[in-house]
């Protein structure tokens, strides 16, 4: 009981000296639907983690399914799943880009050098670019002969480009090397987030986890 009281006291003290400008000390911190300058909103956070999960899942599925043999149960199902989820990922990414463009970007953490910020933003841009080219190359493999891609029987994605010489082979090589690059870059991106969290002890990762600013946070 005493301890709790003490904690409340301390919090109040911190709140008083808090320099977070956009919220009065009295209102409890909440997670909005949209982004604010303080942090990401619910939609941006959900999109980020859904994409992260799908990308890792698709990479694992892709590597696994190319090693399957003819008589494996998943020989036909796994590629169908890979293509279906890939198509859904494309739609999610379109939504994500639109959402990003129509929302404010949370402020960068203070105390990060401009060069480091530029590097971080470049990695973000590359992640988006790689993802779109990667998905397009996958589409070009499966539609090279004019066949459409069936997405879980819900709809089918028609072939548009079919006349690139050796299309399925070139698109296949691009798909593989870009997948490796994307995973490499994503690992770098994740390590950077962990570095911010554990070494710099700033809010970089917390913002993407939807943890609102605490009074105890360093401004």
């Amino acid at each position: 009981m005493d301890k709790q009281k003490q904690a409340i006291c301390m919090n109040t003290q911190h709140n008083l000296s808090s320099r977070i400008p956009t919220r009065s000390p009295d209102t409890p911190p909440t997670l909005g639907i949209r982004n604010s300058t303080e942090g990401y909103g619910l939609i941006a956070i959900a999109l980020h983690w859904i994409v992260a999960l799908i990308v890792v899942g698709l990479f694992g599925l892709g590597v696994w399914m190319t090693g399957l043999t003819y008589y494996d149960d998943w020989y036909r199902r796994a590629p169908d799943l890979h293509k279906g989820i890939g198509t859904l990922l494309f739609l999610i990414m379109i939504l994500r880009v639109v959402w990003r463009a129509t929302n404010v970007a949370p402020d960068d953490e203070s105390g990060i050098s401009p060069l480091q910020l530029q590097a971080a933003h470049l990695v973000h841009l590359l992640l988006y670019l790689l993802l779109f080219v990667l998905m397009s190359s996958g589409y070009l493999i499966s539609t090279a002969d004019g066949r459409s891609i069936d997405v879980f029987g819900l709809f089918s994605l028609p072939a548009i480009v079919t006349d690139i010489p050796n299309q399925e082979d070139i698109a296949g090589a691009v798909h593989w090397y870009l997948a490796l690059s994307l995973i490499g870059l994503a690992v770098l991106h994740a390590l950077a987030a962990l570095k911010h969290h554990f070494i710099n002890r700033d809010r970089t990762l917390k913002k993407m986890l939807g943890i609102p600013p605490q009074p105890t946070d360093q401004p």
Binding site: S142, R147, N166, D169
Partner: peptide
Amino acid sequence: ASIDSNHAERDKHLR
């Protein structure tokens, strides 16, 4: 590489 079984994904596998 000019193998053609009228199915791009299969041809890619055959190559």
